[in-house]
Design a protein around this nucleic acid. Structure first.
Length: 586
DNA sequence: CAGTGAGCGAGCTTCCGCTTGACTT
């Protein structure tokens, strides 16, 4: 009979850890939070210091029953929920719900699921940090008060069943304001000059004028000036360029890259990642950390050495960008770097390979490129044309992984697109084919995709890895925003061509404004947003979360009383709620 | 007498964050 019980949050994690520990240990899972505020109005006793009344959640009754049985059969209980604010609260709720005896209960934490990390954690147990728990309670209570006081106002003023909250309302605001910015956007056109030449070898060389012309008259005049000109290479410069790999995946970067490369929705990505996690193929998929365990790094470098050679290895540790990161887990990586394929269905395999490549590439050498710039002089003008090309001298991490970028045209764009220049020398005279001046148009800021909205929220410190996908689902379900693809419309543009026959101006047509899977605000989304911005500007302020997070940190450090913090927020907020509700204006 | 309809009251919606698995489509 085991003498010790370890409780973690996830059953898959429990299975792994049980494998590390001997017969004296049994490992069980709480399946996340076990208690929460009930739905009704009595959950928080506002009159008495905002005292919360928690209940075991409906779907956790069975979990608690089973855990209680296990507790009875052991001597010591180790609460091993995640090493962050929510995890600390889970540990406390477990100790309350299971009525654990303080003397035989220990709190342990680890940030990587490796045998060493777990054994070390068992050797240095501590008590539950009530200040951290109080910071979580303040977070929970604030979110309930905001959500459950604002939403009913919307039922009365706009439409029943609507919702507002600290996170979702800011997400909607971002989409609404982006759309307004696009509406206000004034398109400018300008003329871009490109020339094409042939070399004796038959290869082509293209050169571009660095400046653009504002008017068709100036463009026309420039082409006229170039008529009959001689073109030659007047300068040739090469410089080395290094490219470094990006950090291994966090939840949000995985969602972005899977969206760009495969067009997956954020919910779809999380579903597939969950499957991989449950099969034991990847580490935990809800994380804000880019850190790899020492063990993972050494196994990744072994794989790189055997597959590509030692010169491709470069050990790196990445700093997390977002200030709100809690880093209770590792970055998302394969559990076994030697396994290149998930061997499951198509979509999961693609996602697995993406995770493998990104994690492996993160420990690989820089790519070394040579960037060449050729300057082409024009005998009849002071202006020069510029031609650039790139040559990869050493592939480094590019052998494995190229990150995609958000581009308006089409989905992800993986290619490095820059070709190398054909062999040319200074003084070489070029054989002119043609020169074009094409009218191009300035572009408004891109509409959000699901994934780019998540990226924005993360940058602002709003929401957590476990809530990014559900937040997107909520604002879609409420019909505040819609995800749509729209066909573009034909747009005329001027094209002037200079070739051996002379100058010829034509009006051409291109397709412009096509959108694929972008978020658009709905009328109801705009109405709700404008209502909240007018009456509750502080709640939907982009820095509201950052401000309250600062106060939660003070609570966690014992420098601020949580009830005091809630009171100072709630009194003016509630007064405003009452006033707004009484206001008979629609 | 039977069926209809106006009017009334009760009960519900909702937050964020931590986890799966049980549900539909």
């Amino acid at each position: 009979m085991p003498k010790n019980l370890v409780i973690v949050e996830s059953p898959a994690k429990a299975g792994t850890i049980e494998g590390f520990l001997g017969k004296d240990f049994t490992v069980a899972s709480s399946y996340g939070h076990v208690r929460d505020l009930p739905k009704g109005d009595n959950a928080i006793d506002i009159e008495n210091g905002f005292t919360p009344h928690y209940e075991v959640s409906k779907d956790k009754k069975e979990v608690i029953r089973n855990l209680k049985k296990l507790v009875k059969s052991v001597d010591t209980v180790y609460l091993a929920s995640d090493d962050d604010r929510e995890g600390e609260a889970i540990a406390w709720h477990l100790s309350e719900a299971l009525k654990l005896d303080k003397a035989s209960t220990k709190r342990i934490v680890f940030r990587e699921i490796t045998k060493n990390a777990v054994l070390k954690a068992l050797e240095s147990p501590r008590e539950i940090d009530m200040e951290l728990v109080n910071a979580q309670q303040a977070r929970r209570i604030l979110d309930r008060l905001v959500g459950f006081e604002l939403s009913p106002i919307l039922w009365r003023k706009v439409k029943t069943g609507l919702s507002a909250g600290r996170v979702q309302s800011v997400a909607v605001r971002l989409v609404v304001e982006r759309e307004r910015e696009i509406d206000r956007f004034k398109v400018n056109s300008s003329f871009k000059v490109v020339a094409a030449f042939t070399l004796e070898t038959g290869e082509q060389l293209k050169g571009e004028l660095p400046k653009k012309f504002d008017t068709i008259e100036e463009a026309q005049a420039f082409l006229e000036k170039c008529q009959g000109a001689d073109f030659s290479i007047s300068n040739l410069e090469s410089r080395p360029v290094k490219k470094s790999p990006t950090a291994p995946f966090t939840t949000s970067t995985l969602q972005q890259e899977a969206s760009r490369k495969f067009g997956y929705s954020v919910a779809q990505t999380m579903r597939l990642a969950q499957q991989l996690y449950e099969k034991g193929l990847i580490t935990y998929m809800r994380t804000d950390s880019t850190i790899l365990s020492g063990e993972a790094i050494s196994r990744a470098t072994n794989e790189i050495t055997s597959a590509y050679g030692e010169q491709f290895v470069k050990v790196r540790q990445y700093k997390t960008k977002s200030a709100s990161a809690q880093e209770a887990h590792e970055a998302i990586r394969p559990t076994n770097f030697a396994s290149r394929s998930a061997g499951v269905d198509g979509q999961s395999t693609l996602l697995y390979e993406l995770i493998w490549k990104r994690a492996i590439a993160s420990q690989m050498a820089d790519a070394e490129l040579e960037k060449t710039t050729a300057t082409i002089s024009i005998s009849t003008a002071d202006d020069h044309l510029i031609s650039t090309g790139e040559v990869i001298k050493f592939e480094g991490f590019l052998k494995v992984y190229i990150e995609s970028t958000d581009e308006e045209n089409g989905n992800g764009n993986d290619s490095l697109s820059k070709d190398m220049l054909p062999p040319i020398t200074i003084g070489q005279v070029l054989n002119f084919i043609e020169m074009t001046a094409r009218e191009t148009f300035s572009r408004h800021a891109a509409r959000f995709t699901e994934a780019s909205l998540v990226k924005k929220l993360e940058e602002m410190g709003i929401g957590r890895p476990s809530t990014y996908a559900p937040t997107i689902s909520t604002i879609l379900k409420r019909n505040y925003v819609v995800k749509e693809s729209r066909d573009g419309k034909p747009r005329a543009f001027n094209l002037i061509t200079l070739n051996r026959e002379g100058i010829n101006a034509t009006l051409e047509s291109e397709n412009a404004g096509a959108e694929k899977n972008k978020l658009f605000p709905t009328d109801i989304g705009i109405i709700v947003n404008d209502f909240l911005v007018e009456h509750f500007p502080n709640i939907v302020d982009y820095s509201f979360t950052a401000n309250v997070e600062e106060e939660f940190d003070k609570i966690a450090n014992g420098k601020y009383d949580w009830a005091k913090m809630i009171e100072e927020f709630y009194l003016p907020f509630h007064e405003k709620v009452e006033k707004t509700a009484d206001d008979e204006r629609p």
